[in-house]
Amino acid sequence: MTRLIAVRLWLFWPLSALVLTACAWQDAERSRLSPVYDSKTGLLTKLSYDANGNGRIDTWTHMHGTRLLRVEADTDEDSRIDRWEYYGPDGELAKVGLSRFDDGVVDTWAVRGPQGELSRIETSSRRDGRVDRTEFFAKRALARVEEDTDRDGKTDKWEIYENSALAILALDTQQRGVPDRRLIYRADGSLDRVETDSDGDGMFEPVNEGVSR
């Protein structure tokens, strides 16, 4: 009997210490979190979090119940949001927003591909939320760029890259939404030829063979 009590005591103290440590850790974690619930539905709408544990909230997670919607984070704690995370319906991180000038205005979005790779970078050059430049990546290298340089809603400039060097520059100079002029470059950066599709039938002809450099 005495032996049984001794064994129980021997087990009791370490287990108690473990439980107390876990509770303390849980309390510490909870103190870094501040949930907000919808007053009508009771659904969780926001989790404010002190990511680095320095006593200052720096990450705001927007939720719809258990579903993660988006995150706004001030990773360098300069009081300006510098990272926006957007999650898909499956709860996966779909794209990340960034501020080119670190002034709290999101103007660039890195979009995630199906394998988790960088698929494209979208930029709003006027920082108004309208994307007018999209860089497409393949195997972590720039593959092509599409741009709406006059911001009429239609792409008017296409750049195709091979081995990180511009290979084709195509332009829509007649606001038709399709390229009508192409500059074809060699691998060393010199110009090979200029082609034009003046009638818009999709067939390009060289305009000035031999002009290069």
Binding site: P35, V71, L93, V96
Partner: peptide, 20 residues
């Protein structure tokens, strides 16, 4: 994409017993 802050926050909230 190497860190997903949202996943970290939700995991921390779940571990610390935040309701919902």
């Amino acid at each position: 994409f190497t860190s997903a802050l949202g996943v970290t926050v939700v995991a921390a909230a779940a571990a610390s017993g935040v309701a919902g």
